[in-house]
Nucleic acid binder design. Structure first.
Lengths: 194, 194
DNA sequence: ATAATGTCGACTATTTCAATCTAGATTTCA
DNA sequence: TGAAATCTAGATTGAAATAGTCGACATTAT
């Protein structure tokens, strides 16, 4: 049930582009993306190419070039990206809605495995098709700001080093009993939700 | 997000063994399993070996030998089988509870991708770890009986061909508006549930 | 002009997948 | 006892996917 490295890197890059947009950076170079997420540069280049062909990102060539999202982050569903890079989300072909394939069992309507895997497929797509890059970006930024973690891509691309604004409001260590929620979905509701 | 053929075949074989038990057949040969599900015999042999080493099935060697479940079907969770054959259920290592692996991102606690994939992992395990072979077998048999589909493994292993009981109660074609539910979970509640 | 960047295609090494093949050990039953 | 049927075990194989790498080229800003 694995996501490939390629798919993972594609998502990381897109999320980074979404963050960049959000902090006012329109273009990000492949080298920056690779450095920020610690990914192999050449491999990432190849992936960005795929994302461009699919119309998810735009590129600006030449010196000071780079990539940006081609669509609003809210219009890019996570599932769409995973399908593009890794193929269907369904665990087995006979429960895929987007790329159905007949399986070996003689009678699909009485196949218990198929019924179970259909539930798994639905559970996966209910998450990956419902949430978009914008959701992931929103939660990421919220968490980073809450913990005063320095945001990536805040340096303008061409200008020389500019004095960095020192935002230092370290949150008072809060000693309540609640733990931060872990998943994305609950974080969309707000930290410590539930 | 694929389940491998090996994993699929393992589950099919185990489900078949569960069905066999339920219809009073204690031992099933690899060739029967392969024929019933249309699987490559030699590949399936190799898989049965793994299942045996893992203690999920028992074998009887020699002529008229075969395999049976080593545990009650209710004690074999689907997730257990998938993990055995295909490894962790989590889409990426950094959200696996059973086989955690650090990922490339510098700060996991502020990684939106990780949060999202944690939700996916939980959605998957909530199904695969909650339901057992017994659940799948139950639903499969219920559907087969409802539609008067001949059950597999009803022939005794050693006896010669015996006249087959002709159960013919074809259901009157029912013209209501409800459709049979598709997934396993709702089928556990009963057909046409929801 | 030149330096920095994206573009494109070929290339490769490793692993996994999905089997298959061969030979051997065990059991049943005639 | 011996033949047939079956599981056991390990080696081997071919194709595909995975995870990159390399090098030449095109484009753009300064």
């Amino acid at each position: 049930m694995k996501l490939s490295k390629k798919g993972e890197y594609a998502l990381r890059a897109l999320i980074d582009l979404g963050i960049a947009t959000e902090v006012g950076r329109s273009l990000v170079q492949v080298t920056e993306l690779a450095a920020n997420e610690q990914l192999p540069i050449k491999f990432l280049e190849q992936i960005m190419q795929l994302l461009k062909e699919a119309g998810l990102v735009e590129s600006q060539r030449g010196k000071f070039g780079g990539y940006r999202l081609a669509l609003p982050a809210g219009k890019i569903a996570i599932g769409q990206v995973v399908r593009l890079i890794d193929g269907p989300l369904a665990p087995i072909g006979c429960v895929s809605q987007t790329a159905y394939e007949k399986c070996s069992c003689p009678d699909e309507t009485h196949c218990g495995l198929r019924m179970l895997m259909l539930d798994v497929r639905n559970a996966i797509t209910n998450i990956l098709d419902r949430y978009s890059l914008a959701d992931v970006v929103e939660v990421t930024l919220r968490k980073m700001r809450r913990d005063a973690v320095p945001l990536p891509f805040t340096q303008p691309l061409r200008a020389a080093q500019q004095a960095r604004e020192r935002r230092k409001h370290p949150l008072a260590t809060w000693s309540g009993r609640l733990q931060p929620v872990e998943g994305l979905i609950n974080n969309l509701l707000g930290d410590y939700a539930i």
